[in-house]
Amino acid sequence: MKKYRFLIARRAVQISILFLYFAANAYGWSILVGNLSSSTLLGFIPLSDPYAVLQMFMAGAVISSTLVVGALIIFIFYAIVGGRVFCSWVCPINMVTDLANYCRRVFGLNQIQKKQPATRKMRYWVLAISLILSFALGVGAFEFISPISMVHRGLVFGMGFGWAAIIVIFLFDLLVLKNGWCGHICPLGGFYSLISKFRVINVKYDNDKCTECMKCKLVCPEKQVLFMITKETMPVLSGECTNCARCIEVCDDDALGFFLKIDEKKAKEIDNENN
């Protein structure tokens, strides 16, 4: 159980948020109304996807004050806790890609296909292209193809052919590219990576405790952020870390854990004393 505590917590958070949205449209609850693009919390707090609002701005739409406030609330929240907390704790696609990843490990697909033919920087290209296209076409370009919104809207308002998006992403991640969607292409993940630089919740790594079993790198969906494993004691600072905490729970040696950046000074002092 201890090995899955964060995984279970993440699934619980993901499914509860989904259910609150679903219940709003199915039973008329008003705790969380709308969807991940824009919603109202408790009937009066506006929440909006800052990336969607940015696309609208590029498309030349007049941005209402409600959207500005909603996008700011979300932006500040994720800038503090880490933008990609959205990816691992909220986004419904995460469950699809995690399943694809799990299947890859179980079936040994990682062994027959070791070379990754694409760069993880692709998401920043996609992000840039989405903004250029929004400007050129006069509509939010990613919002028209986003499988995240498609699936989330589908679960709340009725699926249509939205299940096809789930299958496409599952098969792509399973057979074409490991961590293909979330780790390479998704511009929303790219956007949240960029606003994560100054987050206060980080994963920290202790090289002295590490026995180099490499379980953390096996489960990590963004394993380039764990470059320091077996090398040196330091926190995971890359914005691409999703704070999913899988590495923390699979570690048998207690070499990985969460820390608050506010404590960083303290940590450094202790470090200096030890040296």
């Binding site: 449209n25 008329g28 709308g34 693009s37 824009s38 919603s39 006069g138 509509v139």
Partner: peptide
């Protein structure tokens, strides 16, 4: 203008329902 401004949140649908 509607296509560029609508954020596709579905709150109108919920309110109608």
């Amino acid at each position: 203008d509607f296509l560029k401004t609508c954020i596709k949140c579905g709150m109108c649908v919920q309110a109608c329902h």
